[in-house]
């Protein structure tokens, strides 16, 4: 690291961004940021995720396998510190998962402890009132972050916010629009898509969202409620959510109102048994 005494948060954020910019192309910044954050704050793993206040999002980068498992766990369960930080817009500091975790997030705490995670510190990424993501620090030992570590993590959260916005503005149009207010406004009728570096974060979990859409039809409910049902099924069946979702999309698993809640009997979809066998009736 730099041979400088720790400065104010702004100085440190600028230094973090300088290190990223000098280190390589922007697509690698999220990964470089979480690794550097892990080393600078002496934690075991760091994850960076896109997340709206209603908990929708995806993991953009992880420092390693542990952070990946923790991010996946929170997504699979739909509970945990990162969702709480995203919803509240305030950091969620859990210095002792064993003491406080089980009351707040029973399933997450159990999974985290089983994986050796004893402390979790989650920082929301905020721009004004708009929440765009979270930076999650996981540590194998319990105890508070020192003031220095806390301030350092805050600087990394600020840097992560800048990086996400930078990636979102993939073609630099916002910068140019900012430089010249007369430009821009290309009559966009649709929301601009997520840039590739961020779309992957959602893309890895797209199958779960698709499955939620399918299950919402099967149960005549909303996709959000359907997602809760998917999560509950994965949890009780002790199977990965992605796997359960893949089964739904491949029509190996259906949800119904039976006592079991699901059936694995293949049911040919109405009308068009296999769209690959003939021309689509919708062409």
């Amino acid at each position: 690291m730099l041979p400088h005494p720790p400065g104010t948060g702004g100085v440190r954020t600028a230094r973090i961004l300088a290190g990223l910019a000098a280190g390589g192309p922007a697509s690698g910044w999220p990964r470089a940021l979480v690794e550097s954050c892990r080393d600078s704050t002496s934690v075991s793993g760091v994850g960076l995720a896109l997340m709206s206040p209603d908990g929708v999002g995806g993991t953009v980068a992880v420092s390693g396998a542990l952070a990946q498992r923790m991010e996946d766990l929170q997504f699979a369960l739909g509970e945990g510190p990162c969702r709480e930080a995203a919803r509240s817009g305030a950091p969620v500091l859990v210095p002792d998962v064993r003491a406080t975790g089980p009351h707040r997030w029973p399933a997450f705490a159990a999974g985290a402890l089983e994986d050796g995670v004893r402390a979790v510190f989650t920082f929301p990424l905020q721009v004004g009132v708009a929440g765009i993501g979270v930076l999650d620090l996981y540590r194998g030992s319990r105890g508070e972050l020192t003031d220095e570590q806390l301030s350092c993590a805050g600087s990394y959260a600020d840097a992560a916010t800048a990086v996400l916005l930078h990636l979102q503005d993939a073609d630099g149009s916002a910068f140019r629009a900012g430089a010249d207010p007369s430009s821009g406004g290309d009559g966009d009728r649709d929301d601009p898509p997520l840039p590739p570096a961020l779309a992957d974060a959602v893309g890895r979990r797209a199958v779960v969202l698709q499955a939620a859409g399918m299950v919402s039809v099967q149960l005549d409910t909303s996709p959000d409620v359907a997602l809760v049902r998917l999560r509950a099924h994965a949890f009780t069946a002790e199977r990965p959510l992605l796997e359960v979702a893949a089964d739904v999309v491949a029509r190996r698993l259906r949800f119904d109102d039976s006592e079991a809640g699901t059936s694995t009997t293949p049911r040919p979809p109405p009308g068009d048994p296999d769209p690959r066998e003939g021309p689509s009736p919708h062409d």
Binding site: L50, V127, H166, A177, L194, V202
Partner: peptide
């Protein structure tokens, strides 16, 4: 840019995320 355009970008990002979902 983070200072001048960040609010707009944050809203754009939220909305892009939402529509993708």
């Amino acid at each position: 840019r983070a200072v001048s355009a960040s609010s707009m970008l944050a809203e754009q990002l939220q909305s892009a995320l939402h529509s993708r979902v």
